[in-house]
Design a protein around this nucleic acid. Sequence first.
DNA 1: TTTTTTTAGTCCCGTATGGAACTTTGTATT
DNA 2: AATACAAAGTTCCATACGGGACTAAAAAAA
Lengths: 187, 187
Amino acid sequence: MRETRAPTLDTLLREGGKAAAGSHGVEDLVSVKLWQNPCWLSFRINFLALQFNEPIYRHIEKEHGLARPEFVVLYSLGLSDGLTASAICSSSGFPKNTISRAIQKLVDKNIIRREVDQADLRSFVLYITDEGKRIVDQAMQPMVERENIMVSSLTPAEKLMLSELLAKVVVESSKWPSMTHIEENEE
Amino acid sequence: MRETRAPTLDTLLREGGKAAAGSHGVEDLVSVKLWQNPCWLSFRINFLALQFNEPIYRHIEKEHGLARPEFVVLYSLGLSDGLTASAICSSSGFPKNTISRAIQKLVDKNIIRREVDQADLRSFVLYITDEGKRIVDQAMQPMVERENIMVSSLTPAEKLMLSELLAKVVVESSKWPSMTHIEENEE
DNA sequence: TTTTTTTAGTCCCGTATGGAACTTTGTATT
DNA sequence: AATACAAAGTTCCATACGGGACTAAAAAAA
């Protein structure tokens, strides 16, 4: 009867939502990765990121001829015009050379415009063009739709809760240690 | 006074957690992407995935000489030994040629072992070796630690809630439309 | 049984990617 | 003011990646 003692928090987290889910539908290995995984969070997050990104970026590539880094730049400017390359880098996580190339392509395609920042001659300020706006607007629709589909099984209250919890984690992310030198077990 | 009417659900979702967060710490563009973004979910998810993956995989590469696809294979086998390549593909989202290459490298390094499946001569069953087990065990520690750091600002109840909500979404993912032919606005 | 279609995995190849070095400008230091 | 240091972008280069064609085996259809 030792088996019936209260489960640890770790176990609870790992098996979070298992009871509610039953076992229908989900692929075998997916359910293992869901319920028997010490890294409950990273699997869930990565899996969902992938499920979202893969079809969306494939579609954007087909429809607008933009690769992912290009669209990331465009999307960022769509949310906040007049950005600098490095701002886009740090908010998106792409390395600066990748973003640099993306910017050049977008400039060539007349989707964005680039002006020297008079306050800092090293950097450029980027502006979205009308053509660019047209593209983001159009590309946004499928993205929003897919998001809605993804959370369609949640109640409004649950959606809100999810949004808030994730936001909380994102906000705290600036305080996480940089993990540059993780404890080296072997010297 | 029109502005004071109740916000829509969309607005609530987008601004989920804003009140609680204040504006301290978070980078400018990050907070725009958090609070003024029609795609609240995908940004949060992608951002967190990145914050997790980038340092972890850099570390694994440095410490064990394994690229991301290789580690994905190894990790999968660590959770459930005796898998087939295609199972790993569909649970991880990597294309099969990438996984195939990763498997070959791992076999060469004696980290996994590959046997022909007698029941289906096309496929191979993969097994983790002792060396492989050693590596996963060792690589797991920093992953778990980083996860814990990521959610360290949440209460146990919140962690559990987050785990359950994400799991629920993952479980439903098998039912999402494939999005192969998104509504083509232009012919 | 024969034929057709799907599935598992590999191979080929062009390209996008990201590390590292480099240039230029701005900021700290002395 | 001179010197060192950091930051913004670009360029170079090796390579990992993924699309697509291909082979072989299994399943489905005829």
